[in-house]
């Protein structure tokens, strides 16, 4: 595992076949197999929080082709395991982000895309903007406003590596929680205004 850490197995049938053989012969643990499988099926949910969506759409367009990483934006949160926060999260949207996040099955991962999703970016002192990491736990941060599609691809690649390196998915299967984080509750109840 460790020897191949640095590589990315995109479209590499040989590596995939060897790996499948190893699993079948019992050389690899099931957790490793889960890590490996999860890292190549990161499906982001179709939740668009802001204008970084234009570059997110470009990432899954023909030029940058995000699907080559085994990643496909999907409609229903129930069938996805990755959320990409595409830019600013406003107070009104924070509630939707949290609800979507809670609907996704574990193990799930989050990428914060763009300056607004890190520290507010241009809107750092805006009265209507919340930091997404206060709402959901984030795995990878992408700087830029908006980041290039390559950056998004980079983030997916790095997240795949992180999953394999830290056995995030496998650990979850074994123990039921992510090794690197406690179950996160938002700092404030972002939906309080809505519930009334």
């Amino acid at each position: 595992m460790a020897a191949e850490e640095g590589k990315v197995y995109v479209g590499n049938v040989d590596v995939a076949a060897r790996r499948a053989r190893d699993i079948l012969l019992g050389k690899l643990k099931l957790e490793d197999a889960v890590d490996w499988a999860t890292s190549f099926s990161l499906w982001p949910v179709h939740l668009t929080t802001s204008c970084c969506s234009t570059e997110f759409a470009a990432t899954f367009g023909p030029r940058f082709d995000g699907e080559q990483f085994g990643s496909l934006p999907w409609v229903s949160p129930r069938q996805t395991n990755l959320i990409v926060i595409e830019g600013t999260v406003t107070r009104k949207m924070a509630c939707a982000v949290r609800i979507t996040w809670e609907q996704m099955p574990s193990p799930k991962f989050a990428i914060a895309m763009g300056a607004c999703a890190l520290d507010g970016g241009l809107f750092y002192n805006s009265y209507n903007v919340v930091r997404p990491w206060e709402v959901i736990p984030i795995d990878i941060y992408i700087p830029g406003c908006p980041p290039r599609p390559e950056s998004v691809a980079r983030a997916i690649v790095e997240l795949q590596r992180k999953i394999r390196r830290k056995h995030l998915a496998g650990e979850w299967v074994r123990t039921g929680w992510r090794p690197d984080r406690e179950p996160v509750k938002p700092k404030e109840d972002v939906c309080s205004w809505w519930r009334g």
Binding site: T49, T88, F123, S126, Y127, N128
Partner: peptide, 11 residues
């Protein structure tokens, strides 16, 4: 609407 209201006029 208003899910992406980022207070442009105030800023």
């Amino acid at each position: 609407i208003g899910y992406v209201h980022r207070t442009m006029e105030k800023l």
